[in-house]
């Protein structure tokens, strides 16, 4: 159920991907997402698949574990696919029923969009699975560092993200627990129409919010007690340094993007 969401969960392992500087992984993820939108042909997607496959292989995270994250977006996937299928106009009509019709272009777009979405989720899952949330936010903080000059509270944003990531699994577990407790009191979260379902969420959401606030309060106190006072004068236990493997990785990634752009231009 909700435990299936792998996004934002770290999978401990010793691999090249795990050891990379988080900035490399963040930049790579962004580049990969861009590359997915550059690609618009079978060759392009083949290259993207190959790239993703190699990264997953190197990351030593079990493939099953990565794809578990997809379950959460099945509905979104089906919806986009359906919309594309029926709404995109094309030259060859494959099927027609009243006002509904499916065209070759529709099928093509639906398939590619679905692949994009799936790869996007898998790609970002690989990043979060191989990077501890702390590294991730450290990387983000460092990457966005220059924005401090225009008064963007980069450190605070990064800290908020890292805390959010730490508490996601805890709150998910808590949701599960409250849900079970209410089911034990005869609550029904599954049947009924949309309004009834929304109403049935109240006994779940109220306790969840209360608990989240209590936790936030406790945590703020615990952080203060440990002398947290913002980013000023703070040192790092794990400062970020680029190593040679990070430079190599950057090289590979930019090459990949170049290939994708070339493929997009000449192999459509």
């Amino acid at each position: 159920m909700i435990r299936d969401i792998t996004l934002g969960q770290y999978y401990p392992a010793k691999s090249v991907i795990h050891q990379l500087d988080p900035r490399v992984k963040l930049v790579t993820t962004v580049i990969y997402v861009i590359s997915l939108f550059v690609a618009n042909g079978i060759v392009g997607y083949a290259v993207a698949t190959l790239f993703l496959g190699v990264v997953i292989k190197l990351s030593k995270v079990p493939f099953k574990y990565i794809t578990k994250g997809l379950k959460a977006i099945v509905l979104l996937l089906v919806l986009t696919a359906v919309f594309n299928l029926f709404l995109i106009d094309g030259e060859i009509v494959l099927w027609r029923w009243g006002i509904f019709r499916i065209t070759d272009q529709g099928v093509r777009t639906a398939v590619f969009m679905a692949i994009r979405l799936i790869y996007l989720i898998i790609g970002s899952s690989v990043m979060t699975l191989t990077t501890t949330p702390n590294d991730l936010t450290d990387g983000l903080e460092k990457l966005l560092g220059p924005m401090k000059k225009i008064h963007v509270p980069v450190h605070e944003i990064a800290m908020m993200m890292s805390i959010a990531l730490r508490f996601i699994p805890i709150l998910l577990e808590e949701t599960d627990k409250i849900m079970k407790a209410q089911i034990a009191r005869g609550a029904d979260f599954e049947t009924g129409n949309l309004i009834q379902k929304a109403k049935a969420m109240v006994p779940l959401l109220v306790p969840l919010f209360i608990s989240a606030f209590r936790r936030a309060n406790d945590l703020a106190m615990a952080m203060e007690a440990r002398c947290y006072h913002g980013g000023d004068g703070r040192t790092k236990m794990k400062p970020l340094h680029y190593e040679s493997r990070d430079k190599t990785a950057y090289g590979v990634v930019w090459c990949y993007l170049a290939v994708m752009i070339l493929v997009g231009r000449y192999f459509t």
């Binding site: 808590e174 627990k177 409250i178 079970k180 407790a181 209410q182 034990a184 009191r185 109240v202 006994p203 109220v206 306790p207 209360i210 608990s211």
Partner: peptide, 10 residues
């Protein structure tokens, strides 16, 4: 009755 059942009051 679950552990810490007061957490389910709403």
């Amino acid at each position: 009755v679950f552990q810490y059942p007061e957490h389910q009051l709403f």
